[in-house]
Design a protein around this nucleic acid. Structure first.
Lengths: 187, 187
DNA sequence: ATATAGATTGACTAATCACTCTACAAAATT
DNA sequence: AATTTTGTAGAGTGATTAGTCAATCTATAT
């Protein structure tokens, strides 16, 4: 792992543990095993590091969600694939997931342009629109359905993380929870 | 408004605007129109102020949710009353709502004891249990249903806040969104 | 071999921060 | 009236911070 990655990795850990401002850049550098100045060689400011980390993690999540052949699947199967992949990613990467949550409910969110924010949900929105057009999904605002979809994901993730469950129980819950959200948004 | 309230009010505004650590206590005191030392007369530390603010806001929300006669209502009506009241409170107090969100996804959350955290959902959990016992709500973990309920609330709130809607449209959406969550959790 | 560009370092700085301290004013209590 | 408690102020303090900078190192290209 190169130094830039080490810095991002250390920053993620410390930000989730202590919060953005309670984590000094000097602490990140120490945790990453690099000098103080090196951090500012890769990221002009601390704010730039925070935003870069968010974009970096979002990219990983997006890659993981799409990491399957779903071209020929039905709308429902595609939705389920996205749902299950996103949920599993969140459960396998709780620190990253928590960081995203922390970032989205912080004032740092405003450092992203509205276009950037919208862009990230674009794929799901398009899928929802297709589902509406083919009368498989309820004919209500796609943005609204997307909001419910994401919220549901967050809720299930949070519940699983704070509950000790066997892998089998967890998988059952994931199946059932998709059935619930699909029942809610499908016609 | 007394000085303590002024301090809480100023802190809320600045925390949501700039984040916890990016808001200096001196700034809060200035915004509240009191001296620096006065802040520390009422709150021993900045952390104590943050937690006190959270507890203060949660108390307001709890009061608002219960502010109706619902003793004789059915489980569904009680759930709807809580849902609508909570949602309306969030829409009428976006800053407070955002603060709660920010607090819950920050490391400050860990300053609350697990008992305190659990206590806050207790009323809804009890209602869900009653609903399950009377076979009106699906027989799955009450904590899980509570998670979904809260997440749904957050999702709808976020959508409404980021969308320009007429009051009529908003009320329709609130009605419809309750029907959706109720359809999801009822038998 | 030499030159050039980028990577890395860590001491340094100016600013800022949470919190303290002393002094005094206003109530409340005796 | 005297005394104690509580509220308020704001200058002051030691610690900490983001970011800079000049110096050194590494690697690749010529």
């Amino acid at each position: 792992m190169d130094k830039k990655s080490e810095i991002l990795h250390a920053a993620l850990k410390l930000f989730v543990l202590h919060g953005f401002h309670a984590t000094p850049t000097s602490g990140i550098a120490r945790e990453a095993g690099v000098a103080n100045g090196t951090l500012f060689h890769y990221f002009k400011t601390k704010d730039e590091l925070i935003v870069a980390l968010y974009v970096h993690i979002k990219k990983q999540l997006a890659f993981c969600i799409l990491n399957e052949e779903i071209a020929e699947a039905t709308i429902k199967e595609q939705c389920k694939s996205i749902y299950v992949n996103a949920l599993n990613w969140g459960l396998e990467h709780p620190t990253e997931f928590r960081f995203v949550q922390q970032f989205l409910s912080s004032p740092y969110l405003m450092m992203l342009t509205p276009a950037e924010i919208k862009e990230q949900n674009n794929m799901v929105i398009e899928l929802i629109k297709e589902g509406i057009a083919t009368r498989q999904i309820k004919a209500i605002a796609p943005d609204f359905i997307n909001s419910l979809f994401i919220s549901h994901l967050f809720g299930v993730n949070q519940y699983v993380l704070q509950t000790n469950m066997s892998v089998a129980d967890r998988n059952t819950l994931i199946e059932e929870s998709f059935a619930m959200i699909w029942g809610m948004i499908s016609v």
